[in-house]
Amino acid sequence: MFGNKVKSRMLFLVSFVIISIIIITFIFRSLEENLVYFFSPTEIKNKQNISLNKKIRIGGLVKDNSFIKNDESINFIITDLKNEIIVNYNGLLPNLFSEGKGVIAEGKLKDKKYFIAEKILAKHDENYMPPEVSEALEK
């Protein structure tokens, strides 16, 4: 069906693609730490020799009824429904920040259960609906 030249070029392309995919997979595997934008509380818990001085990001849901605001700072709990981390923050919160919704905190761990945030980002999910529908769903 194809000439010899076309066949050899096809062979070259196919081997190029396969080798590239293997190389890319290995690169991604080894860069995993840098490619994830944040860690979940469970990942933090399972991590060995975690550095407390390094700036990291943790993400999850803001636990319901965990938000406490006082004069100096804000405290809330980030949960992935399995493990939790208490977050302490002093600054402005994004508009979409609310209990039960996704959040990412950037800062440093004090220990595996306590996080001091320097920046808070709101993470929203892939659900889009009008307010009336959301109210109807809650009922």
Binding site: L35, V36, H124
Partner: peptide, 11 residues
């Protein structure tokens, strides 16, 4: 889907 991202998954 592969990594934790700030960007939400596809709707």
């Amino acid at each position: 889907d592969w990594w934790n991202t700030l960007h939400q998954p596809s709707s």
